[in-house]
Structures are given as structure tokens and as C-alpha cells.
Design a protein around this nucleic acid. Structure first.
Lengths: 216, 216, 216, 216
DNA sequence: TATGAATGAGCCTTCATTCAT
DNA sequence: CATGAATGAAGGCTCATTCAT
């Protein structure tokens, strides 16, 4: 996939030195946002932690939210990793695919809990970041909707279900649950148990046929 | 259950005039929080909108968060109304109970969307309000867990399910979905469709038997 | 001594009830000023501690400083007690008189350390209270100057000394030392040692003849 | 003795421009504190008088008290100048040394009367500044105690005297007297007369032998 | 590009005092 | 006389962003 069109928004630094500085800033930003949350993070702290002057921050980012967006972008791959959202190899039984997807998502969430917390905050405060989060959720939902539709076509899932609606609802469930557990520390459970729980909810909600319809 | 113990922290106004002023402040606070969100709400605006001097705000609340808590408290009844969460009359079939509960919750959420948005914000920014939100979620979850257990006992719901886990997960789904739709304006659907969607998810996830088992 | 002329400034409460309320306020004020200092003392706290409404404070005092002045006035007797400042019975040898005076002063200071601290604060912040303090200091100085003059006349003290100047200087020494020790907690010593120290300084500074000039 | 360890708390400005701004702020602070006293001084006034934005004040000082401390530090040299406290050249007769020390102190006090008033205020209101003042007093006292001990060793001063106690007491006398006269405007005298008075008190209190003992 | 100082609008909170009842 | 609610001016401090060097 070629660089997206919106790459023009933030001209990438030409010099190697610029590349390095920018990378340092993104790393520092990640660390600071993780530690302090979106609102409490100060751009001067990010600059200091990156080892550059306060003003240099603005050489690379137009504002604080852009730095946050850059951090998220650098995580994009991890957060939207195939395992994290997609049903996996098509040959897999849906249950296995769902379980794998949920586990990957929950693991990624837990691994980046600090940032996810910051993201929740940011989404409730900054319009552009809110839009970005919705966009990400939409990506997930569409991917999942396609999988559900496929499973319906294969006779594995209740055909009356609206794939899109179900995907949205089930994604909502998993993401909120992850927030509850990993950000707010509610409901202490193991990642395994959590994975089983949401997988079971998915399965039931989709009316997943226990075994493929190969039987006569 | 009597009012929380820390209600004593803010002694209720002695005089009738004080009662009126306090009520005016709570009303104004609700309006301002709805309009501006938690972070952007200013105590001076609340005071002005209540028609009192800026300092009078502090006669009744130690700070902004206390005013917000007071607003939530005044909503408590509505948000925790039996319909909004409980399975309703015990004789009802679970599906009807779930549908009624979800509809009531979603209606209340939509009716107070501005405030709910403020609450999400507040919970991510203020520790005490976060704790209050978790407490509220717990109340819901426990109520629902009891209902599920009852249904299991009646042979209407998959007996292998952990009632508490299922309740937490399904509540998460509904609340996040409500936030998506009513706060962020994603996924435009009717309240009816939304109600049907989540009710169906509940039913499937619980393995709800369409009609009670009639075996002897 | 009949009531001073300035009693007119604050018309004494006529009713017995008023007398009691005023007394309660003065007692409460003393306690609060002692505990909080002049600046941090709140009139509402004084009223609450006196068991009256906030507004009642102003029935008895025009403002905060008046209440403080009233407290000091109620202490006047103690602070200006004969022992605390005067040379005592004229027949006494000066050294004994000085020692007794210093001891009485230091004891009174220590007993009322909290209030004295408040007084220092008040004097640096409120003009009227500053004037009152200077007036009190002047009273002391004059009394002591007279004693010194008397001792000079008796040939017991260096006749070249300016009685007024010496009195002012030595009073300054004692009052500042008391502040150092009892308010700021510097130089921990016993009251006995402190008394001996200042008495010795007085004696030396006055060129006090060890024993009366009765010898030939 | 190197600068106090906590000097590191406020890193000195890197650029020359920063040096200039900081100096301007300290000068402005001195002027404002002198004119308004510690409590009434406003940081915004200091900034305005320094010709910088209100926020720039906080680039150099965390708060008002730090600015005050910086002003005092810039006075340190003057206030603790050898002449102001020390007995001067060792060959000098104590009386001359004491007179010179007292005169220097009183002159410095009078020259900075506005600031000294602010300092008294500050010490009664701010804990850190109080501690600083006690520390300064201790420095004086120790220096004087050493001088007294030296004079005792030379047979010029009453050997029974506790050098430290005497130093503390006499310093207290002089500082309080200076405050009386220069801050509160009590007891109008000339600086010469004041110097003579306190010098005489010192001499008497120390039992200073008019001229060195000539015994072999 | 880098630097780091400068900017300045913005808002919460206190509390002595007043006043309607 | 008592009550207790209402008043409202005042100011310290933050920090994202800009800009002169």
C-alpha cells in the first residue's frame, strides 16, 4: 500500500537528522502520553524527554493532538494486526477465529493499556481524535461484518442477523470490557478467562453452530 | 439502602431559601454540563445561570466535581430505575424483560445524552467520579447477574454461563453502544432497531430458550 | 479605674444575653486566633466556635481586627501585670526587681505564645493593631524608664545612661528574644536560663552596682 | 561554603537574554516588595514592572516566595557584610569593633527598610522564609559568639558570660530596635544616637573593660 | 532545523462583610 | 438580637503555542 494521500498533511522530514528527531519525539510522546494521559501530558515534557528544545516539538507537529495521532499511527499496525481483528485463515472454524481475534485484541489492549486510556480521554476531548477513533472502530466493524456475512453464507451463523449491527455490538462489548478491566482495573480476571467469556458471548450472540454443517 | 454515608459532607441548607438556591444551582449545573461537557463547564457559568453570585456556588459545593456528583445523584433514580436495568416482573418471559430493560436504558441514555457524555469525560478525568461510575456499573451488573441466575434456575438460560461475567459483558455492550450512537453519533439507527439489536445479542449470548421448557 | 473613654467605640451590649454572646465570641476569637494566627483566622470560624451565626459576629464587632483588639484587651491585665513589667516594690534591690519583671513577662509570653504570634502578624498587617502594639510597647518603656531613672537617682545605675533609650533597647531585647524562643522555637532553653540571661544583660547594660551603695 | 544545595532547584537561565530578564524580575520584585510589603505584592505587578508578560514570572520563579528569596539572596552580601556583623580587624579594640558592626547593620537596615519590613511580614507568613530568617539570625549569632569568646580569652570581656546566649540576646536587641525605628517609625532618633545607644548596651552587657588589661 | 525564552488568556476559589428575614 | 445565605472582588498559576536568534 503506497503512502496514504494525507501524508501530505505532515511533510516527512527530509534530512536523516530530522528523521531521528521526529522518531525521538514520537517515542517520547508515547511514553509521556502513556504515563500522564492525554490531558496531563505537556508538550514541553515530550520535548524534554526527546532531548530537544520545546520549540522543536512544533517543527514536527502542528500541535499536541498531532503528536498523539502520530503515536497512534505508529501503533496502528499492532492494533489492527490481522490477528487482532480479522477472523484469521478462512479455513479455520469461526469459533477458533473469534477466539484468536479476541485474544489478540485483548493482549494488545493490555500491552498498551496506558495509551488506550489516553486514547479514551483524547476521544472525549478532541474532535479530530474522536473522529480517528470512530474510523478505527469502523474498520474493525467492517472487517468483522464481512466475516460474519461469510459465516452466514457458509451456514455457520444465524442468517437472520444483520452482520453490521452484530459486529458493531460485539466490538463495543469487547472494547468496553477491555477498558473496564485494563484501564479502570474493575473485575479482575485473567486474560484467558476474559477471552473465553467474550468468545462465548460472540458465539452465542451469533448463534454459532457448534460444528460446521458438514453433517448431513 | 440509606443515602451514602458521605452525604453528611455537604450539610443540606437549613432555610427554605437555601433549598431553592441549591436546587437552582443543580439545575443550572445540569444544563451547563450538558451543554459544555465536564471539562469546559465553568463554575462561574453555573452560578450565573442559577442567578446567584459566583461565590454562592461554593456555599453549596466544595468544587465542580461535587456539583457534578449532585447532578448525577438527582438523576440516579432515573438511571437506575427498575425498568432501566431490572428484568421487570418476574412472571415475564426473559426476552420481554430484557427488551424492556434495554429499551428503558437506551431511552434514558438518549434523553440524557449530553449528561452521559459529560459523565464519560468526567470519569476519565476525576478519580472520585470514576469510582462513582464503576460503582454504578457494579450495581447494574449485580442486578443483571441475579436475573440471569434466576433464569438459569428456571432452565431458561444456558446453565454453564457465569452469570456475573455475562452480565458484565452484556452491560458493557449496551453502554458502549449507547455511547457510540447517542454521544458520538455513529451508526445512525432508530431506538427501536437498537433495542432489537441488543436484545437479540442478549438472547443469543444467554442461549435463551425461545419459550420455557415444557418438560414435566 | 473607670471604663476608658474609648469604650464608646464599641457600645457594650445592654442585655445579659448580649453580654454572654459577646463573651463567647471573645473566647472563641482567642482560641481561633491562637490556633490559626491572625491572617488565617476566619470570622465564620469564630462565630461557629462561639455557637452563633456568622452574622452575629458583626453585631458585636465592626470587623475582624476589632475582635482581635478585644481579645488583647481581655489579656491586657495579664500582659501588663505589675510583675510583668514594673520593678516591683520599691524597696527591692533592682536586680531582684528586674529578674521578677523579666520572669513574669517571659512566663506570660510563653503562656500566650499562640496569641503573641498572632499579634506579631497582626501588627505587620493591620495599621490599627500596629499602633496598639506600639502603644503597649511605649507603656512598658515608660514604666521601665521611670524605674531606671529612680535607680540612677539612688546611685545604683550608671547615671550617664538615657533612661528612655535604655528602656526601649532592653525591652526590645526581651520581647524579640521571647518571640525567637516561644514563637519560632529557636534556641531551646529553659525559662529559668532565659530569665537569667536577660536579667544579666539588663544588669550589665545598666551598669548595675552589685549591691546598694549603702557601704561607705 | 558553596551555594546551598537547593540552588539547583532553579536552573539559571541559559541564554544572555534570560539572564537579563531574570535580573529585571529580581529588580522589579525588590521594588514591588519594598513598596507593597510581602503580602500585598502581586506577581503580576512584578512582571509588569519588569516589562514582561505575567507568565514569564513563572519561567524564573515557581512562586512569589521564591522571588522574594531571590531578592534576599541578592541582598545577602550587603546584609551579611563583614562590617555589618563581624567585629572587624582583630587588632581593633572591641568597643570600636562593636560600634562599627552596629553602625553598619543599622545603616544597612535603614537603607533597606522597606525590604526589611517585607521580610518581617514574610517570615511570619511563609514557613520557608521564616526558616531562612532564622538561619540568617543564627549566622549572625555564631559570628558574634565567636568574637565574644575571643574577647573573653583576651581578658576583655566578663568570662562568666555564655558567649552564645549573650550574642543571641544582643542581636535580638539590635534587630528589634531597628525594626521599631525604621519600620514602625517609633522613637525618632538619629542613626548616630541609635548606634551609640546599642553600642553602649553591648559594652555594658558584656562587661567590657574600657581598655585592655595591661598586666604582664 | 534548533533553541529556549516569551506570551497571555483563562478560571477557580476564598472570605470579610452585608442584609433580608 | 439572631440567623445564615448572598455577595463579589481579587489574583495566583498553567501551558500550548509563537518567535527572535
Amino acid at each position: 500500500m503506497p503512502p496514504a494521500a494525507d501524508a501530505a498533511v505532515a511533510p516527512p522530514p527530509r534530512s536523516a537528522r530530522g528523521q531521528r528527531t521526529r522518531a525521538a519525539l514520537v517515542a517520547a510522546a508515547r511514553s509521556v502520553f502513556e504515563r500522564e494521559g492525554y490531558l496531563d501530558a505537556r508538550t514541553t515534557d515530550i520535548a524534554r524527554e526527546a532531548g530537544v528544545a520545546a520549540g522543536s516539538f512544533y517543527t514536527y507537529f502542528p500541535d499536541k493532538q498531532a503528536a498523539f495521532a502520530a503515536v497512534l499511527e505508529s501503533l496502528q499496525d499492532e492494533l489492527l494486526a490481522p490477528g487482532a481483528a480479522a477472523p484469521g485463515p478462512r479455513e479455520q472454524h469461526p469459533l477458533a477465529a473469534i477466539r484468536a481475534g479476541n485474544r489478540a485484541y485483548l493482549e494488545a489492549y493490555r500491552r498498551n493499556a496506558g495509551l488506550m486510556a489516553a486514547m479514551e480521554q483524547a476521544a472525549l476531548v478532541d474532535d479530530r481524535l474522536r473522529a480517528a477513533r470512530l474510523e478505527r472502530a469502523r474498520t474493525f466493524a467492517e472487517r468483522h461484518a464481512r466475516a460474519i456475512a461469510r459465516w452466514q453464507a457458509a451456514g455457520l451463523v444465524d442468517p437472520d442477523l444483520d452482520p453490521r449491527g452484530a459486529a458493531v455490538a460485539l466490538d463495543a462489548m469487547v472494547s468496553r470490557l477491555a477498558e473496564h478491566v485494563f484501564v479502570h482495573g474493575a473485575e479482575r480476571t485473567s486474560l484467558d478467562d476474559l477471552t473465553e467469556l467474550v468468545t462465548r458471548m460472540w458465539a452465542g450472540a451469533l448463534g454459532l453452530t457448534p460444528s460446521p454443517r458438514k453433517e448431513p
